[in-house]
């Protein structure tokens, strides 16, 4: 790891100023759980680390019946995991956090850091996509709001400009008759996922599908929302056959990358299994 300077701005405003000044010489550090590993391997050598972990204006979880939930970017995984508001309104997020890494990493790592590092296997994005989350980005020209699925652009790349930060995750209230499930496949527990799948269904009163969301991790350079597979369910009664059909459609959208642990075919096969399982699980929550 190379030497670097360290700045701890006192506010979001000051953070943006610092970033605007130093541009690509500066790098945000939140919990450091991903960044420090990257620095240690000399994959990146910023001149200045800008620490936002202590900014209390980015550390909160609120809920409003109409607006839904807001989670500040520096909220730790642990805080999300144990938040009574999260457990009450979006239990899937608490469950997801409970299986993300280890307590040590969850105590330090932040939800913003997880989304910004944009590891294509990351746990946080798929359930957020399934929950229709949006993200608030703050920069020198003010704020912009984007759907979660539009935030990531490539491996370890997001829409963030050098002088922007991710400030908040917003999740709309859950519609009635909605079920959401997420799970991931790992060979070693506590490890990053190999692949994972999140599925959400909202049913009409007659039991047909009003809306479906399917998102996977580890199956593309970015968290993959699969609209073609979602469309299979629209307006129909969800059956095992229909799920199988959607799974096959979803498989077409995946471009898994082989690595040391698993081949691309294997990853795709397992991701499909997980979509099937999560679809059944989400459905079982409403039926």
């Amino acid at each position: 790891m190379r030497d670097f300077d360290y700045i701890a701005p006192k506010s979001v405003e000051e953070t943006i100023k610092v970033l605007s000044e130093y541009k690509d010489e500066a790098k945000i550090i939140a919990g450091g759980q991903s960044l420090l590993n990257i620095l240690k391997q000399d994959l990146m050598a910023p001149e200045i680390l800008v620490d936002i972990k202590h900014l209390s204006e980015l550390d909160y979880i609120t809920y409003d019946e109409k607006e839904g939930m807001r989670i500040g970017a520096t909220t730790t995984h642990h805080a999300v995991e144990v938040s009574p508001l999260v457990i009450e309104h979006y239990p899937i997020l608490s469950e997801m956090e409970h299986t993300l890494a280890f307590p040590q990493t969850r105590n330090w790592g932040t939800i913003g850091g997880n989304l910004c590092i944009q590891d294509p296997t990351g746990d946080v994005a798929p359930p957020l996509i399934a929950l229709r989350a949006t993200v608030k980005i703050v920069g020198p020209n003010g704020e912009r709001i984007l759907p979660m699925e539009d935030f990531s652009t490539d491996y370890y790349e997001t829409v963030l400009e050098e002088d922007e930060i991710l400030a908040e995750v917003r999740i709309p209230p859950m519609a009635p008759r909605t079920g959401v499930a997420y799970s991931k496949f790992r060979i070693v527990e506590g490890d990053a996922p190999i692949v994972g799948a999140a599925v959400a269904f909202t049913l009409n009163e007659d039991g047909t599908c009003a809306d479906a969301r399917i998102a996977t991790n580890g199956t593309a350079p970015i968290p993959l929302r699969i609209p073609d597979a979602e469309a299979v369910f629209k307006g129909k009664k969800i059956t095992d056959e229909l799920i199988q059909e959607a799974v096959e459609v979803a498989g077409e959208a995946m471009e898994c990358i082989p690595d040391i642990v698993a081949s691309d075919e294997y990853k795709k096969r397992v991701a499909k299994v997980y979509i099937k399982r999560m679809a059944r699980k989400a459905l079982s929550q409403i039926q």
Binding site: N37, Q41, G190, D259, I260, V261
Partner: peptide
């Protein structure tokens, strides 16, 4: 079940505990 030192032309492809899969406490 999980550990394997993978090489290609003598080059170790997974020289880190991210890619070399050790069992951990929860396993």
């Amino acid at each position: 079940l999980s550990e394997n030192l993978v090489t290609d032309q003598g080059k170790i492809l997974n020289p880190s505990f991210v890619d070399y899969k050790l069992m951990r406490a929860p396993d």
